[in-house]
Design a protein around this nucleic acid. Structure first.
Lengths: 120, 120
DNA sequence: CTTATACATAACCTACAGGTTATATAAATC
DNA sequence: GATTTATATAACCTGTAGGTTATGTATAAG
């Protein structure tokens, strides 16, 4: 199946081990062994997680001898942040508006009188 | 397996059909049938997607007769937005800093002279 | 040259995601 | 009361996610 960038980024972020690795990489460039240490799993499992992050475009890899240097690429995560941030703000605003509305009509609700905007 | 809130939210967002439903819900409260229409899949498939969104806390449901009214709950998406936004900003800043650094040392690079910060 | 290190790849297993069709349930309509 | 409408649930299938162990490969160190 063909997955787009957002699909890949969000599903990469859905695993705590992978989010952990990204957090580790916030401290700067690293390598596979160092990234593996805090995680209680085999080395091939780490390799798989890194490949998922790489396919989502979230990390980039350069070989330096037998070592693989890993660093974050901030661009796809920024795209995801834009998507999610847009809706987060929009819904928060909606939510706050409803909240304010409910507060304004508190008396009506308590007296079981429905403001006509909500009547069918 | 036990999944935390962030896991559930990100994996819920990883499917384009579910993101589509959330976008539909940005236009306001809706019901299952209406949410189903734009998606080329069976009604049970829609029900499953809605259950995933519900378990992630992204939507709330109230029964009104035989109809289920669905609306967004902005709180979990805001949590996800916070996580992702934090790192997005951080990495963008890192990225821009590296970019600026590279620009500042452009001549050194072109002449193959390595600034001593990068020497092994 | 031999051994150790840092990784990837292969083969395998189990669980679950995401779709299907068929059926159930509850409410609305005729 | 019978039918239609709105939805859920069950049973099933296929593919893939995420883990394992075993093995391969290239580079570094002794």
């Amino acid at each position: 199946m063909y997955k787009n960038q957002l699909d890949l980024v969000f599903s990469a972020l859905a695993d705590p081990a992978r989010r952990g690795m990204l957090e580790q990489l916030a401290g700067g460039e690293s390598n596979v062994g160092t990234l593996a240490k805090p995680h209680a799993m085999s080395q091939p499992a780490i390799s798989k997680h890194l490949r998922v992050l790489e396919r989502a475009g979230l990390i980039q890899r350069t070989r330096r001898g037998r070592e693989h240097r890993i660093r974050v690429d901030p661009r796809p995560i920024e795209a995801a942040s834009t998507w999610i941030g847009h809706y987060a703000r929009f819904w928060k605003q909606q939510f706050d508006a409803i909240d304010a509305y409910l507060k304004a009509h508190e008396k009506d609700i308590h007296t079981n009188i429905q403001p006509k905007e909500l009547q069918k």
